[in-house]
Structures are given as C-alpha cells and as structure tokens.
Amino acid sequence: MATEPLTEEVAGTCVDAGGSAIGMPQLCFDWFPNQIFWLVITLVVIFLVLSRVALPRIAAILAERQGTITNDLAAAEDLKAKAVEAEEAYNKALADARSEAQRIAAEARAEIQSGLDEAIAKADAEIAAKAAESEKAIADIRAGALESIQVVAKDTAAELVTALGGEADAKAIDGAVDAQMKG
C-alpha cells in the first residue's frame, strides 16, 4: 500500500520518513477525528437508507409474499373442496346409473322370460295337437293296414287254393282268414 515515500512534513508520529507505519496505525490518535467523522457520516447515511427505503420495502415484499401464499393456499383449499364435491357427484351418478342399468336388465329379463314362457306353452299345445293328430293318423293307418292284410291274405289264400287245383270258396276262405287273424 503505502510503499511510495511520503514527503517529510507528512511523516509525523505515525509514519516514518520512508512511508512505513511506526507501530500500529490503529493507535495513531492523529487520525482518529478524521476516521470518526467519516464513520458517523457513513452510519447516518446507511441508517437513513435502511430505515427509509430498504427495510420498509423488504418488509412489504415479505408481507406481500405471505399474503399471496395465504391466498393461494385458500384458493387451493377451495379447489380441493370442489374436486371432492365433483367426485361425490360423479360417484352418485355412477351408482344411479348402475342401479338403473340393473333395473332395466331385470325388466328386460322378465319380459323375455314371459315371452318365452308363452311361446313354450304355445309350442307345447301345438306339439300336443300335432301328436294327437299323428296318433290318430297312425291308428287310421294301422286299421287300414289290418284291413289290407286281410284282403291280401284272402286274395293270397284264394290264389293258393286255385293254384292247388281247388275251387276257391270265398266264404270259407274269409272265415278261415278271419279266424287266423283273430288268433
């Protein structure tokens, strides 16, 4: 720092002729008034700057931030409540829809069931009618067949008798065939 030599008259009790410190410069009382004077000015300036400008401003910034955070938290709380509400509504709608669907399904099932039952009953009746008809037809056919067999048997018997050289007696043959058929 003070390596450049100072002039002779400056070299006082604190600085030697070579510009070096004699002892501790901190204890040079010649400089005290100067240092204290400028220190007081400095402190007053800093105090005024801080108390008038800096500290109120920083306090305002911090308060504003706190306010913003509080507001945001409240808004978030609101939104959260709304979300919960919406979820409840959604769940309720879902449950409603489900029960409605079940109801519709049950209705449809019942309708189908009744239709089915009706159809089955109708089909059963038709089947029974058809079966009765068929039975009748079968009985007819059976009766017809018996008659035909008698006719065929009588014809055959008459042919056999003729072939054997006998005289076919229609009455005797009928009676014999009838007797055979009954047995």
């Binding site: 070096s20 410190a21 501790m24 410069p25 240092q35």
Partner: peptide, 10 residues
C-alpha cells in the same frame, strides 16, 4: 515486512 502499512490512513 511492512504488515501494518496497509492500515495507514492517507
């Protein structure tokens, strides 16, 4: 060494 010269008031 001039360790204290840095503290001289000029």
């Amino acid at each position: 060494f001039h360790p204290m010269d840095q503290f001289i008031v000029k």
